[in-house]
Write a protein that binds this DNA or RNA. Structure first.
Length: 103
DNA sequence: TGCTTGACATAAT
DNA sequence: CATTATGCCAAGC
């Protein structure tokens, strides 16, 4: 079974509301542990009108990924706040409270 | 079909 | 905390 973008989208689509997941976590759930780069690259290929909750995907530091440009980062933060995620003064939030737990 | 590119993670410096 | 180096591999050209 080869993993491509589609499998990554499937996993991200399963992220419950008011929860977030790291790239590494998604990669693991998608069957490609350690390949966090695949996740990020898959998201980069997403369209602006996609149905994938890409805003629930963050890096291992519990922060919004510093993608190219800065306007999109603001959007992601707004979308997360609308779901109940509360950001720290450092632009982070408690992964222990908001990270998606599959257990 | 061979090379370059990446919304990352981890460790070392 | 910022920078550098390495792992890993599909997508795009």
């Amino acid at each position: 079974m080869k993993i491509g973008h589609d499998e990554i989208y499937e996993v991200i689509a399963r992220i419950p509301s008011r929860r977030v997941a790291t790239y590494g976590q998604i990669a693991e759930l998608a069957g490609i542990p350690g390949q966090a780069r695949r996740v990020g690259y898959a998201l980069s290929a997403l369209a602006a009108d996609t149905s994938i909750p890409w805003h629930r995907v963050i890096n291992a530091k519990g922060m919004i990924s510093p993608r190219s440009g800065s306007g999109s980062g603001k959007l992601q933060r707004l979308l997360l706040q609308k779901e109940g995620i509360v950001f720290d003064s450092s632009g982070r939030f408690d992964l222990t409270r908001f990270q998606w737990r599959t257990g």
